Simulated assay, not measured.
Amino acid sequence: MKFSKFFFVALVSVSAFVSCTNNDDDKVDSGDYNEGILVLNEGSAGQGSVSYISNDLATFTQDAYTKVNGDDLLGKYVQSVFFDGDKAYIISGGSNKITVVNRNTFKIIAKIESGLVKPRYGVVKDGKAYVTNANTYADWGAPADAPGYKDDYVAVINLATNLVESKIELNATANRIVLENGKLYISEPYNNDKLLVVNPATKTLETPIAVGSKADTMESKDGILYVLRSSNGVASEIVKVKLSDKSMSKITFPADFKNAKNLDIDQNKIYYTVGTSVYGIAITAAEASNTAIFSYTSASAYGKMYGFAVKNNHIFIADGGDFSANSKAFVYSLTGILEKEFTVGVGPNGFYFND
Rank of each mutant, 00 (worst) to 15 (best):
Y65Q: 00
K240R: 05
V178Y: 04
P200Q: 00
E169K: 10
I337W: 03
Q79V: 09
L184R: 09
V78Q: 14
F106R: 07
V124E: 08
S289G: 11
N354P: 02
K250D: 10
D216C: 08
R176S: 14
F351E: 03
V68W: 13
S80E: 13
A146Y: 15
V310C: 09
V117N: 01
V197Q: 01
K221S: 13
I283R: 01
L225I: 06
A282R: 04
L159D: 00
E341L: 15
G307D: 09
V123I: 11
N22D: 07
V156P: 12
A10R: 10
I186L: 05
S298M: 01
V123G: 14
K118L: 11
T136C: 11
I281S: 01
T66F: 07
A210K: 08
K194V: 15
I91N: 00
I270W: 08
G345E: 04
K304M: 06
T217R: 09
S300Y: 03
L263V: 04
S220R: 05
K214Q: 10
V344S: 10
P189Q: 14
G212R: 14
S187M: 03
V100M: 14
S4A: 07
Y190C: 07
I270S: 04
A215R: 06
G31I: 04
Y271H: 10
G75Y: 10
